[in-house]
Design a protein around this nucleic acid. Structure first.
Lengths: 130, 130
DNA sequence: CCTTGCCATGACGTATACGTCAAGGGCCTC
DNA sequence: GAGGCCCTTGACGTATACGTCATGGCAAGG
């Protein structure tokens, strides 16, 4: 037992996610993380890890921290049953899904162009070399 | 004839792409655009339009202007035959393609999570309503 | 006891991407 | 010829996301 009680310091957590303690503190200052404190020191649990993971992934696809914050709050409210809350979650996720789909198609278009350039250059190089 | 000689002022171009003259000037200051000048005033041609289109699309998927600049330069060098140039283009496009693929998969993962939240909330709402 | 190491907060600095005046020039119109 | 309107450059302001000290606490090791 007691196998699920893994805890990490801020530097351990940062290193595990290839980021910095400064960044992690910054996310906390922005309200994205609220780790426990043990004598003033931050202690991160598994749930905090997951939140950080989500933060970094959202960041990597271009989301702002302020948007990520509301996004994280959707997880929290997700289980609540009040109708307004549910509708809010539904609307927010729907618009975010559409935004991401749009971004995806922009990426696909850019990928297509890059491949044209890439393949064109490769063919010219082969004609030279071969 | 003379149908391809369409030209635009900075504000016309900006409006056409739902951006601002200030932003367009900023891109020029960063070396991403070099429109003709007629008595000091900027005049944009079709090629400039395409460049701006590419800039905005790249921006929308999270590219930095400095990266977009080198990306635009790949187009310029694309036709050149010197081996070093070709290899440079091939390497740059390849790494950019990988980066975009990675970003796309991050988006897909996020989309999957959002759909879970979205559908879950919808079902709970329907059970309430229905 | 003192150094080493990690932690904390606070304050200032930096890079990116513009927004927002300010001051002035050129052209058209009434 | 005074007023609009659009253009120019230049300078300063702003939001985001941290980096980089500076300063100090606390705990383990030698």
């Amino acid at each position: 037992m007691a196998a699920s009680a893994e805890l990490w310091s801020i530097s351990q957590l940062a290193e595990a996610f290839d980021t910095t303690p400064r960044a992690v503190r910054f996310y906390e200052a922005k309200g994205l993380l609220k780790p426990q404190r043990v004598g003033g020191q931050r202690v991160y649990c598994e749930a905090d890890r997951k939140r950080l993971s989500l933060i970094l992934r959202a960041k990597s696809i271009g989301s702002k921290l302020s948007d990520i914050k509301t996004f994280l709050e959707l997880y929290g409210r997700e289980g609540e049953g009040r109708k307004r809350q549910l509708q809010f979650v539904i609307d927010k996720t729907a618009s975010e899904i559409n935004a991401l789909k749009a971004k995806r198609s922009q990426i696909d278009a850019t990928l297509a162009e890059l491949r044209l350039i890439h393949d064109g250059a490769r063919q010219r190089l082969e004609r030279r070399t071969g």
